[in-house]
Design a protein around this nucleic acid. Structure first.
Lengths: 234, 234
DNA sequence: GCAAAAGTGTTCAATGTACACCCATGC
DNA sequence: GCATGGGTGTACATTGAACACTTTTGC
């Protein structure tokens, strides 16, 4: 664990540093993917990590996470939730860095993959959560925890709509559930449940491309969703 | 909010300080109570707050929370969970202090109410969560969040046994649920559910005191509980 | 014998789960 | 006309909710 760092002794004089790290998840080409950046500096230069940064003294934690997110994506109306705070003394080499981890769900269409700051990051890329490259720090653990949390959330409320385009078919919605929950769902039961929850609205449009029967396009009823917010998020 | 502190400007040179604060809950005299300490120093000298302390550079977050807990109580086998990290820039006057909040559930019998360190704390006392005194920092918000989380946990798994003595009656168990969930429960349904979950074992003992019919004493089946750990805590 | 808390089952509604065939389209 | 994914309903099991009376004890 912690990439085989040796134990080290600490003097109790230095203060801690605090970062936020954000696990950014999306669905792309039928896979659940996480946004990773390649580090341009030590420690772990050249390794992939989730995007993060130091918290400024004047900003609160949510704002810091949002700032990190904005550096990588063009976000609006994003699902962003504090995940957990990781603070093992050995998680970061040589320095004590505590990180407050967040996770975000967003549509692939909202993301521009470009390196905002070449001093810190040499590359930005989506990686399938199924085959992650070796990661810096404890970021593997953080990503796994974010997947677990996403699963728990999805079983309570339909956060999957944050990952899909504005209009989507029921099959696409079901596939996003299956990707996150890592299990197959029954088509009829899934549709019955979704349609009876009143959070979907028909758009009277349908898919035209492809060589198959067109599928009805739905969008989420944000008004009903908001009214159920208390129910879903308690 | 934050006790009416004025906004202030920050220089980006200083680093943050990081504390852990622990919401310690128990049931005492039929009330859900939280352990509060009276601050002996500024800021908020003389105000009540939840116990906390700075995180040492060599300890991880769980250990820091456990250390704070041990200073106040004689703990063993405690339910301790990271709650949330609070980091509003104005939550602490004059300094930027981010706090990683934990919550703990424990039996009233495991607690010695004594002031361990007179330099920091002038008094230690249980307070009913229904009528809290004015609290330092954002500690009211932290306690309220811990109650919400405790409720969520209790609806999934029987953490209430952490609050009760080793042997307890079904009525006592039900009362602890009712205190935490803030609603009354049906006696027959409650008993049916508890007894069918196989997490209770009869002790063949019963209460003798009082002028009423004796009640059977139960204890929790820690082996079954452990085997269901994966189910309860996922 | 009476006050006070312990103990006990059945019915109904809602929800989740299993399961198989026809439909609309492009080629 | 056929291959491909879209679309549909019923039966059963499990779970949660409502509800009232008898039992045991101390005084």
């Amino acid at each position: 664990m912690y990439n085989g760092l040796m134990a080290r002794t600490f003097t109790e004089t230095k203060t801690h540093e605090v970062t936020v790290d954000v696990v950014i998840l999306t669905i792309h080409n039928g896979k659940l993917k996480v946004l990773l950046v390649k580090r341009a500096n030590e420690p772990f230069r050249g390794k992939w990590s989730i995007p993060g940064g130091f918290i400024r003294l004047s900003e609160n934690l949510d704002d810091a996470a949002l700032r990190v997110l904005k550096e990588k994506t063009s976000v609006q109306n994003i699902y962003l939730e504090q995940l957990y705070t990781f603070g093992d003394p050995l998680r970061y080499p040589n320095t004590r860095v505590i990180t407050c981890a967040y996770f975000a769900l967003l549509r692939a269409e909202d993301i521009k993959l470009e390196v905002a700051n070449k001093d810190e990051v040499s590359e930005v890329q989506w990686h399938s959560v199924e085959k992650l490259p070796p990661l810096a720090f404890d970021h593997k653990e953080i990503i796994e925890y974010s997947l677990k949390r996403t699963r728990e959330r999805l079983e309570l409320c339909p956060i999957a709509f944050q990952l899909l385009p504005k209009k989507f078919t029921l099959t696409e919605l079901q596939q996003s559930y299956e990707l996150i929950l890592k299990k197959t769902l029954d088509k009829r039961n899934f549709r019955k449940k979704m349609l009876s929850s009143n959070i979907l609205v028909e758009t009277n449009e349908s898919t035209k491309q492809g060589s198959k029967r067109p599928a009805a396009l739905y969008s989420f009823d944000t008004i009903t969703l908001d009214s159920k917010r208390g129910h879903f998020f308690s």
